[in-house]
Design a protein around this nucleic acid. Structure first.
Lengths: 251, 251
DNA sequence: CGTTTAATTGAAAGCAGTCAAACTATGTGG
DNA sequence: CCACATAGTTTGACTGCTTTCAATTAAACG
């Protein structure tokens, strides 16, 4: 166990630091945020469209997704969240949730009361700034996803998603070796890329046949990161990572 | 001419008020923002990917788009902007622009220096809040666009886009009669919906044949708003409009 | 007016979707 | 620990929505 990681909000500190350096006061302000830890089951909803949440959830462990549904029930996954990320800063400032946030796996969540967050931000403006930046970066990721779904073919789309996830895990220090565990079923992968599960399966096998990915269950490994980036038309710019964090891939 | 609209930033006030009420102090703070008016040609870039802008542009008149390009030059339009909207609040807080903003038509832009904006926000926190809310609402629109492009068929996709534009123009008071002028070519419409220009043309004609839209050049009118909403699977929730502004359509 | 840009239409091709079935994990209770 | 149930993956055959290619018509613009 890494002692530095003992504090439930330590990964939130790390996450915010992936975009901008924080000083000790900022780190202190984050770690001092009052919060309640809750274990959540896989598939449980952290937030539903229409909700008016009174707290902001930070993923301490486990993975979550954002998604929306069309009128006839088709689902589009909008984002994937890794430990350390806050899943509803936006909802602290907007009245009504416009989408859903759901656990992908079992995990723990730290719930920070809306009021406490606002107070902390007033007391430490640079914390407010850090949160704003994280929110804007997320917005940038939404734009990239729109591009991905709207203008890339199925092969690039999936490759892009796999690259993004790898890089973000890396930035969070959650990928010590080259491989990582993809916490999604092929159906979820399909909903994230605007494809069908059947087609996702075919594309994954094709990527595998081409030596671009190696799979073992849900574990993914990239034998040739550079080529994978190319196929996925992937660049880290939209993730707005600090210097040094941007170069991921196989270590 | 409406005298209330004389001030170049009056429409920015109106825009921010579509989400939350502002008090006189807020309005004052906005109208007092130092700015430089500039005329821009159609197609001119307000911002390019990679730029590090030192000012924030507010559309005073004319229309603009946000877009990104894939590695092989395919374009995805991410958002449409109407007069009164600020096109790069995000870039005041992120270092490097991750996408492009381009004028769709001729128009005027008010450029607010980054510094001045930060100063104003510090002096009037509720202005900061209003800007944050506008930014979050835009983020919500990106999510809806991802859903649109990822999970709706071509007919719904285009109908949805037409609905969104109508409602947003209404909210800004820019659509006195039922119709509106769509400032986009069919190719641009295609890039906004992840389709091709040819197919957009076919879908528009089909919508027309079904009595869902009436067209005269670029002017669009909805004979039956309710039916149009249904076809576009459109709800105003994601626009986070204040009560009373949400019900648009044909007046 | 002449030139360029945008809209329109038809025919053919293709990528991804649908349907259906088999197979493989994963998990649960007896 | 096995047997059964359930969820997820894989594969094949076929369909179809959208694209591509190409040509024509209409509108916009100096």
């Amino acid at each position: 166990m890494n002692l530095e990681r003992e504090h439930p909000l330590q990964l939130l500190v790390r996450k915010l630091e992936t975009h901008r350096r924080l000083d000790d006061e900022d780190r202190r302000a984050i770690l001092d945020l009052p919060h309640r830890l809750r274990a959540r089951d896989a598939q449980s909803y952290l937030l539903r469209e229409g909700d008016r949440p009174e707290s902001c959830a930070v993923l301490v462990s486990g993975y979550a997704i954002r998604h929306k549904l069309t009128g006839d029930g088709a689902r589009q996954i909008l984002a994937l969240h890794v430990p350390g990320e806050a899943v509803d800063f936006q909802n602290v400032f907007l009245e009504e949730a416009d989408h859903n946030v759901q656990m992908l796996t079992r995990g723990d969540v730290a719930e920070i009361p809306r009021q406490a967050l606002e107070t902390a931000v007033r007391a430490c403006p640079s914390l407010g700034r850090a949160i704003l930046v994280a929110t804007l970066v997320e917005s940038s990721a939404f734009r990239e996803w729109t591009l991905n779904v709207g203008r890339r073919d199925s092969r690039s789309r999936i490759a892009h998603l796999l690259c993004e996830f790898a890089v973000r895990l890396n930035a969070q220090g959650l990928r010590p070796d080259g491989a990582y565990e993809l916490p999604m079923t092929q159906e979820q992968l399909a909903d994230a890329t605007g494809l069908t599960a059947v087609h996702v399966n075919r594309v994954l096998r094709a990527l595998q046949a081409d030596g671009l990915i190696e799979r073992d269950r849900r574990a993914i490994r990239f034998p040739d990161w550079q080529r994978m980036r190319d196929v996925g038309d992937f660049s880290t710019r939209y993730l707005h990572l600090r210097e040094g964090l941007a170069d991921a891939g196989a270590p």
